[in-house]
Simulated scan of single mutants.
Amino acid sequence: MKAFLGTGLLGANFVKAMLRKGVQVQVWNRTLSKAKALEVEGAKVFENIVDAVTGVDVIHLTLKDDDTVNKVLEAASSGFSSGVTIVDHTTTSRQGAVERTKHWKARGFTYLHAPVFMGPPNALESSGNMLVSGDQQVISRLEPALSEMTGKLINFGPEEGKAAGIKLIGNSFLISMTAGLSDALALAKAQDIDPAAIAALFAEWNPGAGAPARLDKLREGDFSKPSWELDMARKDAGLMMSAADEKGVRLIVIPAVASQMDSWIAKGHGSDDWSVIAKDNL
């Protein structure tokens, strides 16, 4: 028997997938109507959170943040069965995951942070990626069940909280990518180019395919053999900003990057590879 706390878009589809595999699931959500919607799927819904976790072996969570997770678990704790396992899929801070692992272990319970790169459709289809790290015996015990929830379970080793940190790193890239796409659309608007042309470009040329090689170059830390000189990249950034300014279009990413470029050019790195702007973070 499992419990699921937090039945928003992601949590609800995790529950549906479990139910369709024949797993009995008790659910709770702060907004009761969201949990009630799962009754037609076969979930057992509880208004009282203590009742929702009573008698279960594993408790899954998909909530908002560290504070919400802490409050929800504390509120539910009087209903925990001896030795219950808590699997938290919430995106939280690394320190929060470390502290909760220690806190609940001291109280006789197992807590595993298992954040995901999965949208609601992935949760329903059991596809996507789930991240774990920490006690390898715990992970080994839970791996069969967690693997059924996702397309790929990625184990980052014994370090507590590492999975939480990796999730934030991945999300930072997703945020940056979306902001970059926003700038691409802004430049298209400024130059009277149909956004469909951007889609056509990316259908033929996938800039994301170069990310692993770019990351390797950054990790190597040698910027003396440029494939794109910083001076030239800064010239192009200037063209972008001028095109946007002429039409009163706002760019999100490029002005901030251009400022970093100017700083490194002033330090004498204009003929280095433009990725030298990341040097201080290596």
Rank of each mutant, 00 (worst) to 15 (best):
A188V: 14
M177F: 11
D236Y: 00
K167V: 01
S172D: 06
A237E: 09
F173M: 06
L218S: 14
S176G: 13
G238Q: 07
A179E: 07
F173Q: 02
E160K: 07
L230G: 00
A179T: 14
G238D: 10
A199I: 14
P207R: 07
L239W: 13
R214W: 10
A244H: 03
L153S: 06
A190C: 05
E246S: 13
K235A: 14
D192E: 12
T178F: 08
K247M: 06
L215P: 01
K152F: 07
W228R: 04
D194G: 08
N171V: 13
G208D: 05
P195A: 04
I169R: 02
L187I: 15
K247W: 10
S176W: 00
E148A: 13
K217C: 03
I154Y: 03
I175W: 10
A163N: 03
D183F: 10
I175L: 08
F223G: 02
P255H: 05
T150P: 02
G170Y: 03
N155H: 04
E229P: 03
A237R: 02
P255Q: 07
W228N: 12
A243K: 04
L239K: 07
N206M: 04
G161Q: 02
E220Q: 11
P158W: 04
S172C: 09
L181M: 10
G161Y: 01
I166D: 04
A243F: 11
D216F: 06
L187G: 06
G165P: 04
P158K: 04
L201A: 14
I169Y: 04
K225T: 15
I252A: 12
A188H: 02
P226L: 00
S242M: 10
G161C: 02
G151D: 05
T150H: 03
F223A: 00
P255R: 08
D222Y: 11
Q191V: 11
S182N: 08
L168D: 02
A186K: 01
T178I: 13
W205D: 12
I252L: 13
L174M: 09
M232C: 06
P207G: 11
S182E: 11
A163M: 04
G248W: 11
E159F: 05
N155L: 03
P226G: 01
D192S: 09
G165M: 07
